[in-house]
Amino acid sequence: MLTFLLRKLALLVPTFLGVTIITFALVHLIPGDPVAIMAGERGIDPERHAQLLHELGLDRPIWQQYFDFLWRLLHGDLGRSLVTHNSVFDEFLALFPATLELSICAMVFALVLGIPLGVLAGVKRGSIIDHTVMGTALTGYSMPIFWWGLLLIIFFSGVLGWTPVSGRLSSMFWIETPTGFMLIDTLLSKEPGAFVDAIRHLILPSIVLGTIPLAVIARMTRSSILEVLGEDYIRTARAKGLAPFRVIAVHALRNAMIPVTTVIGLQVGVLFAGAILTETIFSWPGVGKWLIDSVSRRDYPSLQGGILLIATLVMLVNLTVDLLYGLINPRIRHNR
């Protein structure tokens, strides 16, 4: 197990380096520069432009900038935002809880609905339930997030008035946010009504962000269950006279979870990508919105730092998934 972990960790190093190179290259491939963007229509004297680029260190050869970036990274320094002049890491830390809270809720939504629906569709294969679930899943998967979000807002917030339109908390609550997790902070604040208000704000964005993972998980669970149901041990279990529910829940589902777990791990990356759009529609103050702003302002350090941190998180999640296989299925052992 330990060697497996070490080997996996060692593999992270070249992946991480690759990510830094790609991130750096992509960020600098975006045409335009922060100084020109800042000046806008007003324009800027070419001399002054060159001088400002020099002050920001952006006039040096790109490889030199990269090695500088890497060197500072090794010292744990992600640099400072060109716009706000705050430390990139601090900005990320301040915004990340919002993204994480939303992602967790979206994932819970996707799992709680996706797995049972997938099992149901698999067990009742070919039935009307199967077709409905799979049809809905396909629709959900193909739904453009932006459009889906607006549709839900207009219907649930606009027409029915059940949920707030956007944001994390109503403007009437002036609470402190020491943890950055609104559900925890509202509980800590002891302000009556704040916690419920925070939950109400989470509903629509979680649904929107969770829709694609939900669809993927449901489809994966279905096909995985179908495969498992054809196995000998299921036939044996059934022949033993086990209750059908027990056959499915204990024997089939556990075996079917391996590919599903892989997919769930991969969905974490999808969640972060989806968070960018979801956060924009729901005015959710997370890292997605921050990255979009950094792109449009050509705030290179924020962009590089942000992408790098997210990429690292996704890598770590995938590592965790690898380790989880062993727990779910003892046949996969990591002690070779």
Binding site: S157, G158, G161, S166, T280, K289
Partner: peptide, 21 residues
């Protein structure tokens, strides 16, 4: 005075209608 930061114009309009701003 509260600035409720809402980047999308359609969402801003929804908030205005809901008297959230």
């Amino acid at each position: 005075l509260v600035f409720s930061i809402t980047p999308d114009a359609s969402v801003r309009y929804q908030k205005l209608q809901a008297n959230e701003c």
